[in-house]
Lab assay of single mutants.
Amino acid sequence: MTGIVKWFNADKGFGFITPDDGSKDVFVHFSAIQNDGYKSLDEGQKVSFTIESGAKGPAAGNVTSL
C-alpha cells in the first residue's frame, strides 16, 4: 500500500505514515526503511509499505520511497 509520511523523528528513529486509503495512521520504525545509508523519512514524503504485526499493534514494514 502507499501513503504519506505524517512525521518522522530521526533522533528517536520512528514516526507515522498516513495511508492513502484513509485508514488509521501506521507506526513506522527506522529498521523498516529499505534504503541504503541513513534510514530516515521526511514529512510529506510518498512511500510504499506493507502492514506488519508489531508488538504494540500494526506497524509499517518494507518501507520504500516513491
Rank of each mutant, 00 (worst) to 15 (best):
G44E: 03
K56C: 12
S23I: 06
K24E: 12
S65H: 11
G22C: 09
I17T: 00
K24A: 14
F30D: 03
G13N: 03
D20L: 09
V26H: 02
T18R: 13
Q45N: 07
E52P: 03
F14M: 06
K56I: 09
V63E: 01
K24C: 12
A55K: 13
G22W: 06
P19D: 02
T2I: 09
T50E: 08
A60F: 02
G13W: 02
P19C: 07
S65L: 15
D11H: 15
D11K: 15
V26W: 03
V28G: 00
G54A: 10
S31T: 13
A55Y: 13
S23H: 07
N62K: 11
D42C: 15
N9M: 06
D42P: 09
S65M: 15
S23P: 05
I51P: 04
W7G: 02
T18I: 15
G15P: 00
G37T: 10
G22V: 03
D11L: 15
A60L: 02
K24S: 12
Y38V: 12
A32E: 06
G57P: 07
L41W: 04
S48A: 13
Y38S: 10
S23K: 07
L41V: 05
A60W: 02
D21V: 07
F49L: 03
D20Y: 08
S65Y: 14
W7R: 04
G22Y: 06
F14W: 15
N35M: 15
P58R: 14
A59R: 15
V26C: 06
I33R: 02
T18V: 13
S48E: 08
K46E: 07
P19E: 02
V28H: 00
E43I: 14
S53P: 15
N62F: 11
N62E: 07
G57V: 05
N35V: 13
T50R: 09
V63H: 01
I51A: 04
E43C: 15
H29W: 05
F16G: 02
G61P: 02
G13Q: 03
G15V: 02
G44H: 06
F14T: 03
H29L: 05
K46V: 10
S31W: 07
S40N: 09
F27E: 02
S65P: 15
G54T: 15
F27V: 03
A10Q: 12
G13L: 03
F49M: 04
G44I: 02
S65I: 15
S53A: 14
A59V: 14
I51H: 05
D25V: 06
F16S: 03
T50N: 09
I17W: 01
N62T: 09
H29G: 04
F8L: 02
D20I: 08
V47I: 05
K46Q: 10
K6M: 04
V5Y: 01
S48W: 14
V26K: 03
E43A: 15
